[in-house]
Amino acid sequence: MSMARRCHWLAPVDGQPLWGRKTLRLAGVLIVAAAASLISPAAATAVIPSSLLPGVYRTSVYACSIAIGALPYVSAGAAAAVAIEAVAQRWRIRHARAAAVAFALLFPGCDCAMSSFAACLRLLPPGLAGACIIWSGCCNPIALVCTAAVLGPRMLVVRMCAGVIAAVLSAVASSTVAPGSHCSGNTSHTGLAHRFVVNAAGALWSLCAVACMSALLLVYRPHALANATPAAAAIFGSLLSPCSTADAVLAGAFFREPRAQIAFIFASQALDFRQLSLMYRTFGSAVMARSAAAGLAALAAACAMAA
């Protein structure tokens, strides 16, 4: 029996298939979705070889949890960026710039939002935009509250001082970069939905890379974090790249020495893979290199203050 005869319900009627390919794909996705929500994890993981379970499974769960936890913030950042770009196109660019700076400095959520929001910071001069990104990672309101609650007021002051130093140094160093020399922004003729998707997908792409790296480190090298030196703590921070709300808790749990704690915190916000890739993606290598140099200088200052 030929394929066409067996799939007679797919046969074209007046040139159009009765059930289009899109409809079939959508139905397939919905069936898998319904099945996935009903299957118990024990039944599902029974198909995985037991030798893979301890490490690979835990790594996958950690990576998925990072991506899922970041999704609301990535969406919020992308939506804010689209709204501010729309303001810039339809009304005054001065208002849009003020809104972009206010969002970057005062957004009371996770720094994951900045990954998808950074596109609209192209409206600003590169120096100011770089400073906003560094400040929002190091010193957003919720990160400061968490640091004060977990590590105490002294560490809060050190974190804020380090954030100010890094932001100012980055702004000064990047002020010589010509505006518009960085990557091109979203084209103005595309729709809001398309721009939202470009912002969110770009952010999530780098976030997924960081999530995989962090999960591998946490699962296969968990003891390497214990009692590390400040330099090692900074390296772990930049590789792990935790959220700004979680870095203080992790620093308090892993390290007892204040210099190692602040090195971990600061490196995980100002010198981490996610932040540097965001700088590169949004403003190019010149701003990224200058921001990294500013971050290193601020890191040294923070360690000196915490000693």
Binding site: S37, G69, L204
Partner: peptide
């Protein structure tokens, strides 16, 4: 990139409706 976004959204919806969200995130 678009596929990664679609995959993450599907993962999040599957986790949310399968009662798995609380073990993965505090959101």
């Amino acid at each position: 990139k678009h596929a990664a976004l679609a995959c993450t959204c599907a993962l999040a919806l599957g986790a949310a409706f399968g009662g798995r969200l609380h073990s993965l995130t505090t959101e």
